[in-house]
Amino acid sequence: PQEEYKKRAKKALKKGDEDTAREALKRAGLSPDQAEEFIRRFL
């Protein structure tokens, strides 16, 4: 589910792994723009 992928993305970002985070967010159904926004907000 979407929440699970978002959790995964946050874990990846904590490790500084933005590529894995983007992949997880893409799987969560976010557009690339939404994924970038999510990452920017998190960092």
Score class of each variant (00 low, 15 high):
38 F>A: 03
37 E>F: 05
35 A>N: 01
9 A>M: 02
4 E>V: 10
41 R>V: 11
24 A>M: 15
4 E>T: 08
11 K>G: 06
21 A>H: 01
5 Y>S: 05
2 Q>P: 11
5 Y>Q: 07
38 F>K: 01
1 P>T: 14
24 A>C: 08
9 A>Y: 02
4 E>F: 14
38 F>Y: 07
19 D>A: 14
41 R>E: 13
9 A>T: 01
37 E>I: 07
41 R>Q: 14
32 P>A: 12
22 R>Q: 04
17 D>H: 06
19 D>V: 13
26 K>M: 12
43 L>T: 09
36 E>I: 05
27 R>Q: 14
23 E>P: 00
38 F>C: 07
17 D>T: 02
3 E>D: 11
10 K>A: 13
4 E>Q: 09
15 K>E: 15
14 K>A: 14
33 D>N: 08
34 Q>E: 14
20 T>N: 07
15 K>T: 11
10 K>I: 15
12 A>E: 03
19 D>W: 10
17 D>F: 04
3 E>P: 06
33 D>F: 09
35 A>K: 02
39 I>R: 00
38 F>H: 02
38 F>G: 00
31 S>G: 06
17 D>I: 03
10 K>T: 12
27 R>T: 08
32 P>E: 12
36 E>W: 04
17 D>Y: 05
32 P>Q: 11
30 L>Y: 11
27 R>H: 13
38 F>V: 04
14 K>N: 08
9 A>K: 02
14 K>S: 13
33 D>I: 11
7 K>C: 03
42 F>H: 10
28 A>F: 04
39 I>N: 00
25 L>R: 00
29 G>S: 03
18 E>R: 11
37 E>K: 07
2 Q>R: 11
5 Y>A: 11
10 K>P: 02
3 E>I: 08
18 E>Y: 15
22 R>N: 03
12 A>I: 02
8 R>S: 10
15 K>V: 13
36 E>Y: 05
40 R>V: 07
6 K>Q: 09
15 K>S: 13
2 Q>H: 10
39 I>P: 00
43 L>I: 09
5 Y>R: 03
29 G>M: 03
31 S>K: 06
5 Y>H: 08
23 E>K: 09
26 K>I: 11
10 K>S: 08
24 A>T: 07
23 E>I: 09
27 R>M: 15
26 K>T: 09
25 L>H: 00
23 E>L: 07
22 R>H: 05
17 D>V: 02
5 Y>N: 06
40 R>K: 10
14 K>D: 09
27 R>I: 09
20 T>D: 07
41 R>W: 12
3 E>R: 10
41 R>P: 03
23 E>S: 07
26 K>R: 13
38 F>T: 02
27 R>A: 14
3 E>M: 08
34 Q>Y: 05
37 E>V: 06
33 D>H: 09
4 E>W: 14
42 F>A: 08
17 D>W: 04
42 F>N: 06
26 K>P: 00
7 K>T: 10
33 D>G: 09
31 S>T: 14
14 K>Y: 11
20 T>Q: 09
19 D>Q: 13
28 A>W: 04
3 E>G: 08
41 R>A: 14
12 A>W: 05
8 R>K: 14
16 G>V: 02
25 L>Y: 02
24 A>G: 03
36 E>R: 05
5 Y>F: 13
3 E>S: 09
43 L>Y: 15
1 P>V: 14
22 R>A: 04
35 A>H: 01
11 K>C: 13
30 L>I: 04
26 K>S: 10
39 I>C: 04
14 K>L: 15
7 K>Y: 08
9 A>F: 03
27 R>F: 11
28 A>R: 01
41 R>F: 10
23 E>R: 09
8 R>P: 02
18 E>Q: 13
17 D>N: 06
40 R>S: 08
34 Q>N: 05
2 Q>K: 11
6 K>F: 15
29 G>P: 00
4 E>S: 09
28 A>S: 06
21 A>D: 00
4 E>N: 11
34 Q>R: 05
7 K>D: 13
30 L>Q: 02
6 K>P: 03
34 Q>D: 10
12 A>C: 07
20 T>E: 13
9 A>D: 01
23 E>G: 05
18 E>N: 08
16 G>I: 02
24 A>H: 15
9 A>V: 04
17 D>K: 05
34 Q>T: 05
27 R>E: 12
3 E>Y: 09
6 K>M: 15
42 F>G: 03
27 R>G: 08
42 F>C: 02
14 K>V: 12
36 E>T: 07
18 E>I: 15
30 L>P: 00
36 E>K: 05
8 R>G: 05
13 L>C: 04
26 K>Q: 10
16 G>W: 03
3 E>T: 08
43 L>K: 13
19 D>S: 11
28 A>N: 02
33 D>S: 12
28 A>P: 00
15 K>F: 09
21 A>C: 05
38 F>P: 00
17 D>R: 06
11 K>M: 13
18 E>L: 15
32 P>D: 12
9 A>I: 04
25 L>Q: 00
12 A>F: 07
7 K>N: 12
15 K>D: 15
43 L>Q: 11
7 K>G: 05
8 R>T: 12
35 A>W: 03
23 E>V: 08
42 F>W: 11
17 D>E: 06
20 T>K: 10
29 G>T: 01
23 E>W: 09
24 A>Y: 15
32 P>T: 11
34 Q>F: 05
34 Q>V: 06
22 R>Y: 05
34 Q>A: 10
42 F>M: 06
6 K>A: 08
4 E>L: 12
5 Y>E: 10
31 S>R: 07
18 E>H: 13
18 E>T: 14
43 L>C: 10
25 L>P: 00
24 A>P: 00
36 E>G: 04
13 L>I: 05
35 A>V: 14
31 S>N: 09
14 K>E: 15
29 G>D: 03
42 F>P: 01
13 L>D: 00
17 D>Q: 07
37 E>W: 06
36 E>D: 12
2 Q>T: 11
32 P>Y: 10
32 P>G: 08
26 K>Y: 12
8 R>H: 10
11 K>T: 12
6 K>G: 04
6 K>T: 11
35 A>G: 03
20 T>G: 14
